[in-house]
Design a protein around this nucleic acid. Structure first.
Length: 262
DNA sequence: ATGACCTAACTTTTAGGA
């Protein structure tokens, strides 16, 4: 089976490319981030016509995550259970008989441009990641296997960005955030991309500005994690980089992994 | 030519993204 995670940067603006992705790659599960839509404006009909169920945690204008699945899912959670007062839609969880699926959009954490010393957003990011880690820790006690796809908004290693020197002080390389990201793999979870490609230079995001895509000025922000017990089924992981160079792209490319049937 | 992004929103300007 194929799993894909993609920060679409508006599901409505990306509907043509989303349609292409579903038809070309035929994923069993597609995790989406930054859908920037409420249920009233989410294109359920278009997606259902392509043979997918869509489950969303929506928000007007910003954020918003979704899980698209060929098979119906249940027990939908639209926020981290310990964080149900979060006003930002950054988490959705659903499950079937064997597996829990989670789509996450980790906060960016950088200060607003007009107030560069404001650490409110960084602290929100760190607190959010703590709650997320607590939730994963709880889930790891469950009998079900786990698949998580998301935009983690972390440059995990200096080599994961075109020029680390340009990112000093940036929330994407904040030491606490990097430590929190590393803690995910201390759980019984595998970073699929880095398990199969431990040191390769791989990017999943290229800024819309500065001709970044054409100059390959990218960074790696998006990942799919699976339960450690699924390790033997993992046959491939990577980035569909060509989707960053198609008409009307997102600034993120889809990331994928392939799992042999159990 | 002193230039260089994209999106949503109570849209004609601003905030957010990373």
């Amino acid at each position: 089976m194929q799993i894909i995670s993609w920060n679409v940067a508006s599901v409505r603006a990306r509907l043509p490319l989303l349609t292409t992705l579903l038809l070309e790659k035929k994923p069993d599960i597609l995790f989406l981030q930054e859908i920037k839509a409420l249920p009233a404006t989410f294109p359920f009909k278009n997606i259902e016509a392509l043979g997918y169920q869509a489950y969303i945690s929506g928000q007007k204008g910003f954020n918003g995550v979704a899980i698209l699945s060929r098979m119906p899912l249940r027990n939908i959670q639209t926020a981290i259970p310990q964080n149900d007062t979060d006003e930002q839609a950054r988490f959705i969880q659903a499950e079937d008989d064997k597996t829990i699926y989670i789509s996450v959009y980790v906060p960016n954490g950088n200060a607003p441009m007009n107030n560069p010393t404001d650490t409110t957003r960084l602290h929100y990011k760190q607190a959010w990641l703590n709650l997320f880690l607590q939730h994963l820790n709880t889930l790891s006690l469950s009998n079900k296997q786990i698949i998580i796809g998301g935009d983690f908004n972390v440059i995990a290693r200096d080599e994961d960005v075109y020029n680390i020197n340009a990112f000093q002080g940036n929330a994407l390389i904040d030491p606490t955030v990097r430590r929190q990201f590393a803690e995910i793999t201390n759980l019984p979870l595998i970073n699929t991309l880095r398990f199969l490609h431990p040191t390769e230079i791989i990017y999943s995001f290229w800024d819309f500005q500065m001709g970044a895509a054409q100059r390959n000025l990218g960074m790696l922000l998006d990942y799919i994690f699976i339960s450690s017990r699924m390790q033997a089924r993992l046959t491939a992981a990577g980035v569909y980089k060509d989707y960053r160079y198609k008409p009307k792209p997102s600034d993120h490319a889809p990331v994928f992994c392939e799992l042999q049937e159990a």
